[in-house]
């Protein structure tokens, strides 16, 4: 079909005929451009760099799968990977813990709103500050936690100086804001649980855990989904706390992939960008397993609308 020329001339009418088709692309252009330059391209470039030996300045040398072969035998890489799994598993505690606190706070007594905001507080604070707080909490000789263990067992434990416990100490610090996040998700979810279903179930004699499991939790599924997503991502992104609290120590026992990658790529002992990129690729692939799952579910929900 040819557009008839109208009073505004042919150019304008062409725009008229096509503006609905073209407008979305014009609106997308700036955001998509930035996103392509700073997110999509770097992902591809990291894959490429991981096949090179490169200090960031001098020309790159192709090493093929060399960096990956080296990873395989790198003890520190294995420790980081193992710690990432510990993080992932223990971080999941944030979901039920957040639900627990949300249920505890889902009341209508006076002042409850202030309580809810104050419980949420840790999430608003920077992880750097959270890390410093917990470092103080665990500090040898005078830290509250040290005193507590001293009082309980006779000898105090300096968590962050102990290669066996340090990772758990950092994870506990990370759980604090993460639980707060899950809590707020569940509080919003609980606010929207259909009251008539609860009442009906109550008349049928459901109460306590049974009610929670069979009536409330199914209605909280969207909140649970988001809580799981943000918790998985949070666990694998853990960098700030490790960096602030232990710097990977003692004896490199608290490294995680995100931190080890940074160390390798930008450490004082010479930049190994290619090797760092290879670590990043491994972390990315692990994350992709989860991301694909999440996005898959979101696409299904979107289509089902």
């Amino acid at each position: 079909m040819t557009a008839l020329p109208d009073a505004h001339g042919p150019k304008r009418s062409w725009w008229r005929a096509n503006q609905q088709r073209l407008t979305p692309w014009l609106f997308l252009a700036p955001g998509a451009f930035m996103f392509a330059v700073y997110v999509i391209y770097p992902i591809a470039a990291s894959f490429q760099f991981s096949f090179y030996d490169w200090d960031g300045l001098s020309p790159k040398t192709w090493v093929g799968w060399g960096n990956y072969a080296e990873l395989w035998g790198d003890r520190n890489f294995i420790i980081s990977l193992k710690n990432n799994i510990i993080w992932l598993v223990l971080y999941m505690l944030a979901v039920p813990a957040g639900l627990g606190i949300a249920i505890f706070l889902n009341q209508t007594v006076t002042g409850i709103r202030i309580y809810k905001s104050l419980f949420f507080f840790p999430f608003v604070i920077s992880q750097v500050v959270v890390g410093l707080m917990f470092t103080w909490f665990y500090a040898p000789n005078f830290g509250l936690f040290f005193k507590l263990t001293e009082w309980l067992t006779g000898t105090g434990t300096a968590v962050l100086a102990n290669p066996e416990y340090a990772t758990y100490g950092i994870i506990a610090a990370g759980l604090w804001p993460q639980i707060a996040y899950c809590m707020i998700l569940y509080l919003t979810g609980l606010n929207n649980v259909a009251p008539d279903q609860i009442e009906a179930a109550r008349l049928d004699g459901a109460r306590g855990l049974k009610m929670l499991w069979y009536v409330v939790l199914p209605q909280l599924r969207p909140a649970t989904f988001i809580a799981v997503v943000v918790t998985v991502i949070g666990a694998l992104r853990s960098f700030d706390l490790v960096s602030i609290m232990t710097g990977g120590g003692p004896f490199g026992q608290t490294r995680v992939l995100s931190y080890y990658m940074y160390e390798k790529a930008l450490s004082e002992y010479g930049y190994r960008m290619g090797y760092g990129a290879a670590i990043a690729v491994v972390l990315f692939l692990i994350m992709m397993v989860f991301i694909t799952g999440f996005v898959w579910k979101m696409v299904r929900d979107e289509r089902g609308r």
């Binding site: 700073y38 997110v39 999509i40 391209y41 770097p42 997503v229 992939l257 790529a265 989860f290």
Partner: peptide
């Protein structure tokens, strides 16, 4: 856009710093 939002920062680090 959604997926990009979840990626680990480390996969972007070397190229973004270089850029």
């Amino acid at each position: 856009f959604v997926a990009g939002n979840f990626v680990p920062f480390q996969i972007l680090m070397v190229p973004v710093r270089d850029l």
